[in-house]
Amino acid sequence: MYGSLSIIEVDNWGRKVHEEDPQKLAEFEARIERGEKIEPQDWMPFEYRRQLIRMIEQHAHSEIIGALPEGTWITRAPGFKRKLALMAKVQDEVGHAQLLYSAAETLGKPREQMINDLINGKSKYSNVFNYPAVTWADTAVIAWLIDAGAIINQVANAKGSYGPYGRALDRICAEESFHLRYGYDTCVHLATGTPKQRQMLQEALNRWWTPIMHFHGPPDKTSVHTETLMKWQVKMASNDAMRQQFLDMYVPKIWELGLTIPDPNLRKNTETGLWEYTEPDWDEFMRVINGDGPCNAERLAVRRYAEEKGRWVRQALIRPTERYVTPLA
């Protein structure tokens, strides 16, 4: 067959899981149960396709928007080495967006539609990128701790059932390890520097702690659909489990540097082995994700500018004989 999986038929929108062909659904679930991957041309429940498109698309948007807060400091990076490294990191993030958009496209949503939905505010992206990088230290905290949170999420999802997403994440994780090392090194440099540098880092950490606690999403008890998504191996770990893993791995590293975390209740319960913390403000999370954060409008305006100003170049290069087909894998 041609590589074209036709764009999802409109009358399929909203098809519920119980409306699927029971035999095909059973075969599909058995395949996942056996640890086999689902490929774009396979039959899949509509809800599986919808959730994956939503998730991969949001992930792609997060990468491309995530390049903006960090990019803020490229022009004023402290020294040539840091400038080169930050430029490389930002370029990586944009490359990750390309990989993820491609994976989402295999599910039948063209890239133009995803960009439309981003700029019109219809699709979301990671909430943390709606906050500003006020100083150089903010970019250091992002590179270390936001990337650390992302790696926990991505390593888990790389083992998920959808082939193209897993393959994209494998490539992404390989590059993220550089980001984490770079971010850690930059934070340690500030933490072991002058009192002013230490203060700058501490203030950035204070600013970013709430977004960091928001990063893995609302507590499990409020998340819907998690059970089916975990059975289908779309979601590989619960929000709370990922947050616990993050705290377990990074709180000791933060404390080791003599920094404080702005949560007096943060401690590891030695009996349960779980971290206890003050729930971050989830109303703020909802408010910011729905558009009312400090940088939402600016982030989207920058994307809009890039798309609009680049359009004439793209159009000049289109060959009228070419046509779009859904990518194969």
Binding site: L68, T75, E112, R304, R314, E322, Y324, V325
Partner: peptide, 27 residues
């Protein structure tokens, strides 16, 4: 971000539309 300030971006509520299919080319 000084680079963003140099763009002199203006707030707009206009709907964004990348237009026709193939704006991002074939694969």
């Amino acid at each position: 971000d000084p680079r963003v300030n140099r763009l002199r971006l203006v707030r707009t509520n206009e709907a964004f539309d990348v237009g026709h299919e193939m704006d991002q080319w074939q694969t």
